[in-house]
């Protein structure tokens, strides 16, 4: 780039106007959504940082520590639900590649059900904790625990809502541009929840019982 800026050009007369220039709408959409997911990742960065700071013993303020209430096997069950749901969504994507509407709907339905199982397990877990007085107001540690796990849970619930919407759009609108890029974006969203769950499972649940 030693040459001066204004003369750096290719082949001189490569043309001045680009007739019939189009952009790829699907990949623009998926990139945009991916960028949004990265900013979502920073939300989790903030929450993990919070959890890390607030997980010393004095942050429990004399209240329950993770030892007292985390059941590793139950959390493992939740992991199973999340991973299998992601696998089911993968099935929907494979069917999408083949243009197989029934397969997509089946995959979406199964992913939805397994996601709902996860949400159900989490609701059950938290209502049990609340019933024995382990609540976010008890201590800084518990506040951080609930905030982190529930933010993931809320993401999962939102994903279910999105899946339900996509179920109808695939069923009634077929594979239009818009439906296809939404399926691609939902894929990113849903798989992202699995990645976050790996971190939550390892550094909150498993680390907690140590």
């Amino acid at each position: 780039m030693g040459v001066s800026a204004t003369t750096a050009s290719d082949s001189g007369k490569a043309g001045l106007w680009a007739q019939h220039h189009h952009h790829d709408a699907i990949s623009t959409r998926t990139l945009g959504f991916w960028l949004y997911m990265l900013s979502d990742a920073m939300i989790f960065a903030g929450l993990f940082a919070t959890y890390a700071v607030l997980s010393h013993h004095y942050n429990a303020a004399g209240g329950p520590t993770p030892h007292d209430f985390i059941h590793p096997l139950y959390a493992y069950g939740e992991t199973l639900a999340v991973f299998t749901s992601v696998l089911a969504y993968g099935g929907a994507m494979v069917a999408l590649r083949r243009g197989h509407k029934g397969g997509v709907l089946a995959g979406l339905g199964l992913a939805f059900l397994l996601g709902a199982v996860f949400i159900g397990m989490e609701v059950n877990e938290f209502s049990h904790l609340l019933s024995i007085g382990i609540s976010p107001e008890r201590s800084g540690y518990l506040s951080a625990f609930f905030a982190l796990v529930m933010t993931h849970g809320i993401h999962m619930a939102f994903g279910l809502l999105w899946m339900a919407t996509m179920f109808f759009q695939v069923a009634f609108q077929g594979f239009t541009d818009k439906v296809v890029y939404r399926m691609l974006n939902l894929k990113v969203f849903w798989h992202f929840q699995a990645v976050i769950w790996v971190l939550v499972f390892s550094f909150v649940y498993m680390r907690g019982v140590l």
Binding site: L54, A61, G140
Partner: peptide, 14 residues
């Protein structure tokens, strides 16, 4: 709004 203890001085907040 919920009385948690993220940034309070007491109850394990920071």
């Amino acid at each position: 709004y919920f009385g948690t203890h993220f940034f309070t001085a007491g109850m394990g907040g920071n």
